[in-house]
Nucleic acid binder design. Structure first.
Length: 813
RNA sequence: GCCCGGGUGGCGGAAUUGGUAUACGCGACGGACUUAAAAUCCGUUGGUGGUGACAUCUUGCGGGUUCGAGUCCCGCCUCGGGCACCA
């Protein structure tokens, strides 16, 4: 008798899979296409995280199950190799990213292979490869053609010490991640995608997709749709008008001042001579503050009076105009009507600067005020609107503003346009040429890719422009339109542009002429199942949806939503229950576990730990239970094998397990699927003799979790083809039905006995059986049954007039 | 502050539409096998009381609805995640 040798088995089957190209799908001919996508890794160095192993094995179990269901499953993988993590790793290691990336991809690929997933490694994408980023640039051109890419001066994070622009991800608590200097805001010309134009559709189309509800909510909150009213206010002695946006126009009679953002263009025009100095000083101070610090709610309110006054169109009263940094320029109109009586922030400000506070809303009759500020209520001291409820007033006031032609209803979103230019080296160059004659000229498609030059000094320059700007051979070019000397754009693209379309590219790897093949794309897209971390909900997943929609509008693709189903894996924590990190020394490396116990054990254990979407702490002890289970499974196939002779008990558990495991995998409840398999294996193990047919069903059922072991067992019972060429066993519902059921008998709400019944028995039949129970009779003694409740095949509940049996002393009192 | 999601044995965790709470696994304890250990197998394992059959309590806390609540409702506590002066 051989013992289970995971090393030998796993090596053997991985080689066979590779040789037979088992996991390669004919994209053109596949009849039942199923695109099983998972978020590709950043090969930023060292090891893949245990989180990758978790995500990929869960996704792979699902993919293998779909394959056994008869689908042609396409399960590609690639490397998100451009971007800051890769570049920072290269800087730290002192190697050119080109070299470190190549090495890291090789390491990552070996690790990915060790997980034993159905990856088709011949369809890999590498985003930093010119054959890939040619299409990243093409995506840019298509968005540019649609008017969805534009340039604008915008404040960016600037580290005064490193003298460089930083991405948001590099700003940690307002400080530079490297030198810890305070990051400030600096205005630079940046490229943006007009994602805000799609805000409404990005919300609405979430109805079409099967995503976790919490992720939909997260995206909706991020987009932040807000229904309100916008209106203009005249300024005393000025032609200009101030526009304000508010969701609470019903409080307008309580407006006692106006606040505009310090960087608002109106500030200069309306500031009076005497206030000029103070205003400019304040503007400079604000600019120096990091956005993070500026937006801190803990910060005390600051601001300066402009010296001018606005007119409240409802009251015609004169009110002062202030500037303050608690108003955000990029949201709404960058100016607000301040109602200190009904807004906490305005209240704080008014208190500090001694401004008037006027109440214009009182609570409805019974409504409780939350703190000092009433929610919506009834209007007071509001002339014609007095007595209306807040909601009525909001509608009437909007109408009134519309009639007056100074405003009306307005929808505002919190979402900002996507700033995607980076003053960094390791990214796809933006394919734009600046010509002194023709202006901004996009590089034509046939001249793509604009290759990233291999340069020695790829570090950030600190001049507010990328390292490419100082590469003369790159930056200088000729205008494709008029031929005169011109300059290239030297910023590169955000790595989220790379990942916004990679799922399209997997389907056409190797084709240099088109981003996608129409026929294949129509067959395979949108993606059927997408699996990855929830941390990408408001970034990658939003960007990818936006790009798909832009492509849909440009008729490049025929679907508005790229990912029909989405599931997230939870986070695996260290054995100490804390987030894994090198400094805490609690990092679990999947490779070590695989080496010790095998990929099959790793896969099964990590999925057995708990619910896939929950994650949880890694328990170093639990693995042994899985190893035992696999060894038991192995031993089953060494027992005497006979041809199936029907045994109802065995039939029943086999059929039950087929049903349960299939359903559980489809629902991503891997832990309970494994539990059901354990129960079956324990049951069969006790029988000593196995039937060929049962072992076949078992081998198929365990195969998604333990693909290598399953192949070996499948071979052992006489099969020459892969177990993954087989089909998921069918179950017979009739065989699942138990012939005898145990149900509970409750008396006055307490379970008093259990009785055996035939399924489908009537209440009278069950009652008769209950009467035969000694215990039941004991509790029914000296009392009359006043009510019977029978839930078929579940329980019988009896109530008596004698409540003495009831043990609720509190109720008796 | 706002928005999500949790809180069940010593531990990871199970529990269809409200219907026998603690499946499965780990650990622990006892036993078999062994010169011994490992491995394997068998048994016990929520708390309290009792030799015992049994009784009684138990799903973060406090109320409620119900014949019946881990599950539904109200009010809290607490942990994790996201957003954060968004008017």
């Amino acid at each position: 008798m051989n013992t289970y040798n995971h090393k030998k088995i796993e090596k053997k089957w991985q080689e066979i899979w590779e040789k037979t190209k088992l996991y390669q799908v004919d994209l053109e001919k596949a009849e039942k296409p199923f695109y099983n996508l998972m978020m590709f890794p950043y090969p930023s160095g060292e090891y893949l995280h245990v989180g990758h192993g978790y995500s990929y094995t869960g996704a792979d179990v699902y993919g293998r199950y779909m394959r056994l269901q008869g689908m042609s499953v396409f399960e590609p993988i690639g490397y998100d190799s451009f971007g800051l993590p890769a570049e920072n790793y290269a800087i730290k290691a002192g190697v050119h990213p080109d070299i470190s990336i190549a090495k890291n991809i090789e390491i990552a690929r070996e690790q990915l292979k060790s997980f034993g997933c159905m990856f088709d490694f011949e369809k890999e994408v590498v985003t930093s490869d010119p054959s890939y980023y040619k299409w990243t640039q093409w995506v840019f051109l298509k968005l540019y053609e649609q008017g969805l890419a534009y340039q604008k001066e915008s404040p960016v994070n600037w580290c005064p010490n490193c003298k460089t622009v930083l991405a948001n991800e590099q700003v940690i608590a307002g400080k530079c991640e490297r030198c810890e200097a305070e990051v400030i805001q600096k205005k630079l010309k940046q490229w943006f995608f007009k994602i805000t134009e799609y805000a409404e559709r990005l919300i609405k189309d979430l109805d079409q997709v099967d995503w976790p509800e919490s992720s939909k909510i997260k995206q909706k909150n991020w987009i932040g749709k807000s229904l309100g009213v916008e209106f203009e206010m005249a300024i005393v002695d000025h032609k200009e008008k101030i526009g304000v946006f508010t969701t609470r126009v019903d409080t307008v009679y309580g407006m006692t001042y106006v606040v505009i953002a310090p960087e608002h263009p109106l500030v200069e025009a309306i500031t009076v001579k005497e206030q000029k100095k103070a205003v400019e000083k304040y503007q400079n101070e604000t600019q120096r503050l990091a956005e993070i610090e500026r937006q801190s709610t803990e910060k005390e309110k600051t601001g300066v009076f402009t010296g001018s006054y606005a007119i409240n169109p409802f009251t015609n009263k004169k009110i002062p105009i202030w500037i303050a940094d608690y108003v955000i320029y990029s949201y709404g109109t960058g100016a607000v009507m301040a109602v200190p009586a009904h807004d906490e922030r305005d209240y704080e400000f008014a208190k500090k600067f001694d401004l008037e506070i006027i109440t214009s809303i009182v609570p409805k009759n019974k409504q409780k005020a939350k703190g000092v500020f009433v929610e919506k209520g009834v209007l007071v001291d509001s002339e014609a609107f007095t007595g209306l409820t807040s909601d009525e007033a909001i509608n009437k006031m909007a109408d009134w503003l519309k009639v007056k032609k100074i405003g009306g209803s307005k929808i505002t979103y919190r979402l900002r346009d996507w700033s995607f230019s980076r003053q960094r080296y390791w990214g796809a160059p933006i394919p734009i040429i600046y010509c002194p004659q023709c202006g901004t000229v996009p590089v034509s498609e046939e001249n793509l890719p604009v290759e990233l030059p291999k340069i020695e000094n790829f570090r950030p320059t600190g001049l507010g422009e990328g390292p490419l700007a100082s590469v003369e051979t790159f930056a200088s070019t000729t205008c494709p339109r008029c031929g005169s000397l011109a300059k290239r754009e030297t910023d590169t693209m955000d790595t989220f542009v790379d990942s916004s379309f990679y799922y399209m590219r997997y389907l056409n790897v190797g084709d240099d002429r088109e981003i996608m093949n129409k026929k294949i794309t129509q067959k395979w897209l949108p993606v059927n199942m997408y699996i990855g971390g929830a941390e990408h909900v408001t970034m990658h997943l939003l960007y990818a949806r936006f790009v798909a929609k832009a492509f849909y509008d440009a008729k490049i693709v025929n679907f508005p939503e790229p990912f029909l189903k989405l599931r997230h894996q939870g986070m695996i924590l260290g054995p100490d229950g804390k987030k894994m990190s090198k400094s805490k020394g609690n990092v679990i490396i999947p490779g070590e576990v695989i080496k010790a116990a095998g990929a099959d054990a790793f896969r099964t254990y990590i999925l057995f730990m708990g619910q896939f979407e929950d994650g949880g702490p890694w328990n170093p002890n639990g693995l042994s239970g899985i190893v035992r289970f696999l060894e038991k499974l192995w031993r089953l196939f060494d027992q005497e094998i006979v041809n199936a002779e029907p045994n109802i008990e065995v039939e029943r558990i086999i059929n039950k397990t087929i049903k349960k495991v299939g359903q559980d995998i489809a629902d991503f409840k891997f832990n309970t699927a494994i539990s059901a398999l354990m129960i079956l294996v324990n049951f069969l193990g006790d029988r000593k003799i196995q039937s060929q047919r049962d072992l076949e069903a078992l081998a198929i059922m365990v195969s998604p979790f333990v693909p290598h072991l399953a192949e070996e067992l499948w071979e052992k019972i006489g099969h020459l083809e892969s177990v993954f060429e087989a089909s998921w066993p069918t179950f017979d519902n009739a065989l699942i039905q138990d012939t005898i059921l145990t149900i509970a008998v409750q008396i006055n709400g307490k379970v008093r006995d259990q009785i055996l019944i035939t399924p489908g028995s009537s209440q009278d039949e069950v009652m008769k059986l209950a009467r035969e129970s000694e215990k039941v009779n004991k509790y029914l003694a000296n009392s009359t049954i006043i009510k019977k409740i029978y839930i078929e095949d579940k329980l019988l509940s009896l109530l008596t007039d004698n409540q003495k049996c009831r043990s609720f002393p509190s109720k008796v009192q």
